[in-house]
Amino acid sequence: MEEAARGSLLDIESLEAAELLTLLRSARRMNPLRPRPLLRGKRVVLLFYESSTRTRSSFEIAAKSLGAQTVLVQASGSSIEKGESLLDTGDTLRAVGADVIVIRHPSSGAARVMAAHLDIPVINAGDGMHEHPTQALLDAYTILQHKKSLKGLQVAIIGDIVHSRVARSDCHLLSKLGAKVVLCGPPELAPDLAATIAPGVRVTRHLEDALRGTDVVMLLRVQKERLAGLKIDLNQYIVRYQMTLARLKLARRDAIVMHPGPINRGLELAGDVADCPQARILEQVRNGVPVRMAVLARALGK
């Protein structure tokens, strides 16, 4: 396989801690309210094979805040729907003048395969169940607005781990920056294998175990259809794993609550948890923009 072009961001796993810290530092200098024309004249193609409101709009605003033009290409209603291959689409977008491609794709590894084929940077905006690196960066950015450092923190990630690209990226990033990660859920959603993903990651079945002494409570979306497919009783799940205000008291008093969205009130979290003072869910969304500005600027060497 060919190397990806410089500036690509395909995953967190292959980045070193220093690079992550540089990106986070760069993000702190970015502000969508004070646009900087670092990418004036550049074309950022947003290639979305899956619909996504927050990631897409966040990248779009980030790119525009840096003075770039954006072009949205969606799978439906395009040549992709007519069976064009991933690499042919990449070649086409390169030929029309894309300077960077931001790709969201339902298959794990799609961003890597495209990046290996192209000589322009590719940014992974979520590939299958694999990684969602900009989400992990904005999660770290958000945590660091409330905690001095990630080193020594305990982060509990609760819910559907196995199908989550956010969980994988978060595990890599938190591990590299010295946090301890506790993954929590039933074996079908949080398999023991998950602990092998990075150093400092463990799995527990017990919510109390995950919450006790934790600094960050990160909840993941749990889909009803998925529980049904895995023959997990919905009510049982709620009884054992739903985050409630009472349970949140088990965590450290200054713990923050995060969620990559979209949230399912009444499933992975009780409605009042989403609105409680410890919740940082909308802040995460807001932080996505400066983080993606930093990622786009890095992609084009700025």
């Binding site: 794990s108 694999h130 990684e131 994988r168 993903i197």
Partner: peptide, 12 residues
């Protein structure tokens, strides 16, 4: 094959 690598790669 199911294993640490399939989990890491996000492949079933």
């Amino acid at each position: 094959q199911e294993g640490a690598n399939s989990f890491r790669m996000g492949l079933r």
